[in-house]
Structure formats: C-alpha cells, structure tokens
Simulated scan of single mutants.
Amino acid sequence: MRFPLVSAAALAFLSAPAWSAQSDCMTTATTQQAMNACAGQKLKASDQQLNTTYNALLAKTSKPGGEQLRKAQRAWVAWRDAQCQFDTLGTRQGSVNPMVYTLCVNDLTQQQTKHLAAQLHCEEGDLSCGGQ
C-alpha cells in the first residue's frame, strides 16, 4: 500500500500544539533542508536536557534504582523510536519524513524529560517515586 506524501494524519501531527512551541526557526525556514536542520537542532537541545536530567536522577538513586532506571531508559528509547516510526509511516516516502520523525522524537524526548524531572524532584514520602 502506498501512502501519500503528506497524509491528513501527518498534517494534523505537524500542526499539533507540541510543535507550536518550536516555531522560531520552523517558521523562518524556507526549504525542507532548513526545516530538517531546525528540527535536528531542537532535538539535540532536548536530548541534552534529557541526558542532564537522567544523569542527575541516576546520581540520586540507589544502586538497585539506578539499574532499574538504566533498564527503563533503554526500553523507553526503543519504544520512542518504534512509536515515531509508526507515527510517521504516512510520510515515509516523502522529503518531509526526516523532519516529521525528528519532531516526533523531540516531543517524546521532552515528555520523558518532564517525567524524569518529576522523579528527580519527588517529595519525601511520595510513593509514586521509585529507585531512591
């Protein structure tokens, strides 16, 4: 089955509120190559923030907690990548695919950073916090 270059789902995906926060270079880029580069820059910054948060949480957790955090993070990365491959299937043959895929990865990376930050800043006695 062939997919159109930009499906209705992909257009909705691109116009989602998560992408609006990334509008600075995305609105000024005039070529697909520039939009791809912009999405890549945003992902790089998000990935650095995730790594900083992850390492801070890892330093704060117990040894068993750290082992579980590493295991969970590896599983999360595999899930994130597979999810974005699925979510961007409709653009797979198009030049927009690298940007759409990167924006998906960026969005999920930002969500994971928030999740890990919540774990990092848990109040004592909060039973939803693990590994500490």
Rank of each mutant, 00 (worst) to 15 (best):
N51K: 13
N51M: 04
N51W: 03
N51L: 05
N51T: 08
N51R: 06
T52N: 09
T52V: 04
T52F: 03
T53Q: 06
T53K: 00
T53N: 02
T53V: 13
T53E: 05
Y54N: 04
Y54I: 07
Y54H: 10
Y54W: 05
Y54A: 08
Y54Q: 06
N55W: 05
N55Q: 14
N55M: 01
N55C: 01
A56I: 04
A56F: 00
A56Y: 03
A56E: 14
A56H: 03
A56T: 04
A56S: 05
L57S: 01
L57G: 02
L57W: 03
L57D: 04
L57M: 01
L57A: 06
L58K: 07
L58Q: 05
L58N: 08
A59G: 11
A59L: 00
A59R: 02
A59W: 01
A59S: 08
A59V: 05
K60E: 00
K60W: 00
K60F: 03
K60I: 01
K60N: 03
K60T: 00
K60C: 01
T61Q: 10
T61W: 00
T61D: 07
S62N: 02
S62G: 01
S62C: 01
S62F: 00
S62D: 12
K63G: 09
K63L: 06
K63R: 06
K63A: 10
K63V: 11
P64Y: 08
P64S: 06
P64R: 03
G65R: 02
G65E: 02
G65H: 02
G65C: 02
G65N: 07
G65V: 15
G65L: 01
G66M: 04
G66Q: 14
G66P: 10
E67W: 09
E67Q: 15
E67H: 10
E67S: 14
Q68F: 14
Q68S: 15
Q68P: 02
L69E: 06
L69F: 06
L69P: 00
R70C: 14
R70Q: 13
K71Q: 15
K71P: 09
K71S: 12
K71D: 15
K71C: 13
A72R: 15
A72W: 11
Q73A: 14
Q73R: 02
Q73H: 11
Q73M: 11
Q73C: 10
R74D: 15
R74T: 14
R74Y: 06
R74N: 13
A75Y: 09
A75F: 11
A75H: 10
W76A: 13
W76C: 08
W76T: 09
W76G: 07
V77H: 07
V77K: 09
V77Q: 12
V77A: 10
V77S: 12
A78S: 12
A78N: 15
W79K: 13
W79S: 07
W79H: 12
W79R: 14
W79E: 12
R80S: 11
R80G: 09
R80Y: 02
R80L: 11
R80P: 09
D81H: 06
D81W: 08
D81Q: 02
A82F: 01
A82T: 09
A82N: 12
A82Y: 01
A82M: 05
Q83N: 14
Q83F: 04
Q83T: 15
Q83S: 12
Q83M: 08
Q83H: 12
